[in-house]
Design a protein around this nucleic acid. Structure first.
Lengths: 243, 243
DNA sequence: AAGTGGTCTAGACCACAGC
DNA sequence: CTGTGGTCTAGACCACTTC
């Protein structure tokens, strides 16, 4: 249990939620696997089943767990095909949702600039992994991305051959580093392309670019990755729900 | 109760939620006022207090109600200053969040085009109210908006002097028509200004514009309003959370 | 002190999945 | 048939607000 007793002032269902979240993060149950039944968890933690339900409710709302009546409660596999990828509507007016091809252009270790440090909530100068990649559909460049990762949590990323990265990074983070992206915050702005960006994206200079800054968070709401993506504004289409 | 017994197959807390939502929509309790206590509601509807809590939980999650421990549960007043207005960050890099000034340019009744009809989920040709307005900060144009409303629900909007509309429409909808906006879906794209838009927004022709299409929904998820807003892309800044 | 929402319990019964 | 989650109940105690 350990961390479940972190803060006695918090209600039990909160501490239970946090403990379950940590255990899932620790890969105690793998995606697709069921966690113990509500009754078992209640017995194990010494709380009523209603309290267990309330804790699980939250993780279901966070899309971390999935209930299946009569079967059990399961760790969700693949949080990668849904809303987090929304801005790939970026171009596919033409129809279906395809995963863009990915080409890593550069990978290096650098000290965190103040902007990166404040986004990732780490000290300035701390080593971070910096990735540059280009995303394409049908070999047409769609997005130029700069990506920053805290090196201490993602050291493995420096070891893998970039050719083996695949087209999606989040599954890589999960498989190689045990880091799971569950939510994100995005800020959208528009700027004009400089010469390098124009060349990379095969646009004319000064063409309008959409800029998407995204901070990806794990299920304990700690920053995992910060990225800045740029793509041609005229092919952009972004869907959002407001509550 | 009436509508609470609409569908016996639904769980009680769902039917209770719907009934409370309808009563709030009917202005049975005004914004800022408390609804009856959980115990009272339980007695009135003949359900356990836990069931009442579950129904209220949902309305709290929808930002329709607000709990205050020791005081009661209140109908939220003014859902107008929070996330629904996010894109007014549109320009105020300079600091605080201000409500742009609003100038109604045109108001008329027209038959719904197929696009408007499908957005508002009404038959093509049904009369709708069409508004054009300009929004400004410090007399600088910021957004040019086209707005469509189902005329049968918003007939009063045709009667009020447009000079008395004020700077915000949603409070107007609520006060005059009893229609409350609780959530919305937005689609963002970028296009270039035509001559009329450029003149209106005081931009040069072909300047990039951000286009925000918004469908506003009431707490029963029925479409209330559809609008298309255009503003200078270089002053655009949009924040979104993804889950 | 009285009334409100917040937490937690213990148990009943139902609907569904899987053997 | 057994085990799972889904709904619902009735009541205890706590924390907070108001008088």
């Amino acid at each position: 249990m350990n961390s479940a007793s972190r803060d006695d002032r918090l209600p039990r269902y909160q501490r239970l939620r946090d403990d379950l979240a940590a255990r899932i993060n620790r890969n105690e149950w793998r995606p697709g696997e069921p966690i113990p039944s509500e009754a078992e968890l209640g017995a194990h933690y010494g709380v009523a089943i209603g309290t267990v339900r309330k804790a699980i409710d939250q993780l279901v709302a966070d899309a971390v767990l999935e209930r299946q009546q009569g079967r059990g409660t399961f760790v969700r596999r693949a949080r990668f095909n849904s809303s987090l990828f929304r801005f790939f509507r970026f171009q596919s007016e033409s129809g279906e949702r395809r995963v863009p091809q990915s080409r890593i252009i550069r990978r290096r270790s650098v000290p965190a600039t103040s902007a990166v440090a404040s986004a990732l909530r780490i000290p300035v100068g701390e080593p971070v992994i910096s990735l540059s990649r280009l995303r394409l559909i049908d070999d047409v460049p769609l997005l130029a991305e700069e990506i920053w990762l805290q090196q201490s949590r993602f050291a493995k990323i420096l070891e893998i051959d970039t050719a083996e990265f695949g087209d999606l990074l989040y599954p890589l983070y999960e498989e190689r580093c045990g880091e799971v992206v569950v939510s994100a915050e995005e800020i959208l702005t528009v700027e004009t392309a400089n010469e390098m960006q124009a060349r990379l994206l095969r646009l004319e200079a000064h063409a309008p670019l959409i800029v998407i800054e995204r901070l990806a968070l794990d299920l304990e709401r700690r920053p995992i990755e910060w990225r800045r993506s740029r793509g041609p504004a005229d092919r952009f289409r972004y869907h959002a729900e407001i509550r």
